[in-house]
Simulated assay, not measured.
Amino acid sequence: MPQLSVIISTYNQPEWLEKVLIGYQQQSFKDFEIIIADDGSSKETEMVVTDFVSHSDLKIKHCWQADHGFQKTKILNKATVASTSDYLLFTDGDCIPRNDFVENHFNLRQPKRFLSGGYFKLPKNISESIAEENIVSQDCFKSDWLLSHGLKKTFKLNKLTSKGFKERFLNNVTPTKATWDGMNASGWKTDIVAVNGFDERMAYGGEDRELGERLMNSGIKPIQIRYSAICLHLFHERSYKNEPAIAKNKAIRKETKTQKRKWTDFGINKR
């Protein structure tokens, strides 16, 4: 049994997923499995996964469901059940992990806590410029490389350059709240199952954070690791974004908060 399971959500982004899986080949911590939580992608994604299964040392399971619109929460629950370790790291198929990404999640885990990371968002031109050799060399995580490819210099570059004391200091002083964000969050499987996983009524818009809110209602506190667990978020359009779904999600989250709900009847186990 691996010490950690990485659950990667994806939908019809095979080129981005390939870069992400190359990132997981570079990890300093090796004792993990990958569950691809595939919300109905076409054969191109299956071909990428099959190729990595055949030609890499990565332990990968492809958890797929038919395409019936945005059902990320449903496939994440299936992937959670399919995982075999007691600690789960959730991320997206458009987020390339730095080579210490899994190691930092593993080393920083604590009982009755979940870890809240962030991401470094890239524009379209730089996302497309990243090649396999840039991931293997880790150049794409270096500020000089990114600036030379047209990235504007901002304070956010500290996410990539902070180490040691500075990293811990920025984690502690950042005004950004520690929440469960699906591209970079981890927690104990028993804690996630205890709140019944993700609420499958929810479409795009805060569907990940609602799980975190139930965890917090259950006494599972978040730890901010925004400057410790680093991934590059590749550019993509959000065609599945729609206002009625966002409004519905907000209503569910409001109920979770005001009623301090620890459980959803629309999760892993259906009542």
Rank of each mutant, 00 (worst) to 15 (best):
C95I: 08
F70T: 01
F266K: 12
I75M: 03
F101L: 05
L215C: 06
G197K: 12
S9P: 04
Y87M: 07
G182D: 08
E237M: 01
F198I: 03
F198Y: 15
N125G: 02
L89D: 04
H55N: 14
G219L: 05
N107A: 08
V53S: 15
F90K: 01
E237H: 04
K189C: 12
I96L: 12
A66V: 10
C140M: 02
G118D: 03
I225K: 05
D92H: 13
I246T: 05
K124L: 07
Y240R: 06
K30W: 13
S143V: 14
Y87S: 07
G206D: 06
E167G: 10
Y204P: 05
L151I: 06
N184P: 06
E18A: 09
H236K: 01
H62R: 04
V53R: 13
E167L: 03
A37K: 04
G117D: 00
G205S: 15
K72L: 15
L76E: 12
L157F: 11
F198V: 00
V49W: 09
I246L: 12
I268V: 05
Q224F: 00
A229D: 00
D144K: 03
P2S: 09
D199S: 13
D57Q: 06
F101H: 11
T179L: 06
Q27M: 09
I75C: 02
V102P: 07
W180E: 00
K112P: 03
Y240Q: 15
I75V: 07
Q224H: 03
M47P: 14
T45S: 02
S116N: 11
S41C: 08
L157D: 13
F198W: 11
S56W: 09
T50E: 15
